[in-house]
């Protein structure tokens, strides 16, 4: 197995409250890993550990061993900006910048010093092609991104992440605000993108996890209850708590 993340004995606290309890996990490169579990189970907290988004919360403390591509991602001298470039993120609600479609994609590369117009054009086109949005927006690149539909906005956000040439794309409920057709487009896209990137997705939609992911992690009350191949987890879960949750007998 080609591991991109190795997490060992991860504990995370918000003040006095322990939100993640002693979790070990290996995330495979070029696979889709889905996190499922009831609200408040720690899955969103856990995905944010992967690109150190929790650093932004003052009372949040974390311990354990987090290796990204063999390096301690929480080491004092580890470049967080570099980590967040390599580990991009897409959120539940599409959040395009209030600027043109082109500028949304070019924003990141520009911040990193890419000034050459031809080079930017190439990055924008390639990112929009990879996010399956190019054909829909190629003639309206100067229009505001806010005018796109919700599904298009979400694919734009994925394109914006891709423009940074990440290794990993984290997605926190990326389709929960979208209609079924837009959801299907994102799901198809995820399956295509795993050829190039490692994808970790938090989803409340269990059928979605079953459809698109290779591995699934089931969280409950800050613990990792079961983690393994998606096909196995949904057909023959090993833990009765997983069985109860995925068959709707949880409560």
């Amino acid at each position: 197995m080609d591991a991109i993340f190795e997490l060992k004995n991860i504990n995370l606290y918000y003040g006095q409250t322990q939100a993640i309890k002693g979790i070990d996990m290996t995330i495979e490169r070029n696979k889709v890993t889905a996190f499922i579990g009831p609200s408040g189970c720690g899955k969103s907290t856990f995905i944010r550990i992967l690109n150190r988004m929790n650093d932004l919360i003052p009372e949040c403390k974390i311990d354990g061993n987090i290796e990204f591509e063999g390096q301690n991602a929480y080491a004092k001298d580890y470049d967080v900006i570099e980590l967040r470039t390599k580990v991009g993120m897409v959120f539940q609600k599409p959040n395009p910048f209030p600027m043109s479609i082109y500028d949304n994609i070019a924003y990141g590369p520009r911040c990193q010093g890419v000034k050459n117009k031809a080079q930017l054009d190439e990055i924008v086109e390639q990112s929009l092609r990879r996010s399956a949005l190019w054909d829909e927006v190629k003639d309206r690149m100067k229009e505001s991104a806010m005018g796109l539909s919700g599904g298009q906005q979400q694919r734009l956000c994925i394109a914006r992440t891709i423009a940074m040439e990440p290794e990993v794309i984290l997605m926190d409920e990326p389709t929960s605000a979208l209609d079924p057709i837009a959801t299907q487009k994102i799901e198809d896209l995820i399956v295509e993108l795993k050829e190039l990137y490692t994808i970790v997705i938090v989803t409340h939609n269990m059928q979605q996890a079953a459809r698109i992911s290779d591995n699934t992690a089931f969280f409950m009350l800050g613990e990792l209850i079961e983690f393994g191949a998606t096909d196995k987890l949904f057909a023959t879960p090993q833990n009765p708590k997983t069985e109860e949750y995925i068959t709707g007998r949880f409560g």
Partner: peptide, 9 residues
């Protein structure tokens, strides 16, 4: 119901 696990089996 889109059953999974034991329901599906």
């Amino acid at each position: 119901n889109q059953p999974v696990a034991k329901d599906l089996r």
